[in-house]
């Protein structure tokens, strides 16, 4: 029962946390971006990678809403990719995605 009373609806959203592998990869592909007038969508999750094995799992078709708490709705494709890659150089190394499952 988390009524937001008309605020931005966060129902049906899933928080996914993962750490990169030893090569600094999370193991998923993203498409879209503000410059392409498309939402950021997970287009592929490679088997056996952090994105595949985290709980809850990242799934193809998931729409990425927030990256490490940051609203990416105005970010270009390249901005989003840089933001994800930067998170593995972060102190925690953790990537936190808020996604809307497809």
């Amino acid at each position: 029962g988390k009524s937001m009373n008309g605020a931005v609806p966060h129902d049906n959203l899933v928080l996914i946390k993962m750490r990169p592998d030893e090569n600094g990869r999370f193991g998923f592909n993203v498409k879209g971006g503000a410059d392409q007038r498309m939402p950021i969508i997970v287009s592929r999750v490679a088997p056996g990678t952090p994105a595949d094995m985290c709980m809850p799992r990242l799934n193809e078709g998931d729409q990425v809403v927030l990256i490490n708490g940051r609203d990416i709705s105005d970010h270009t494709h390249d901005d989003v990719v840089m933001l994800i890659k930067a998170s593995c150089e972060d102190q925690s190394g953790e990537l936190i995605l808020l996604v809307r499952p497809n």
Binding site: F28, N29, V30, Q36, M38, S43, H77
Partner: peptide
């Protein structure tokens, strides 16, 4: 013109 077949996917 719209290029709707031009979808870039980047691996991260």
């Amino acid at each position: 013109e719209e290029k709707d077949e031009c979808i870039i996917a980047t691996e991260v």
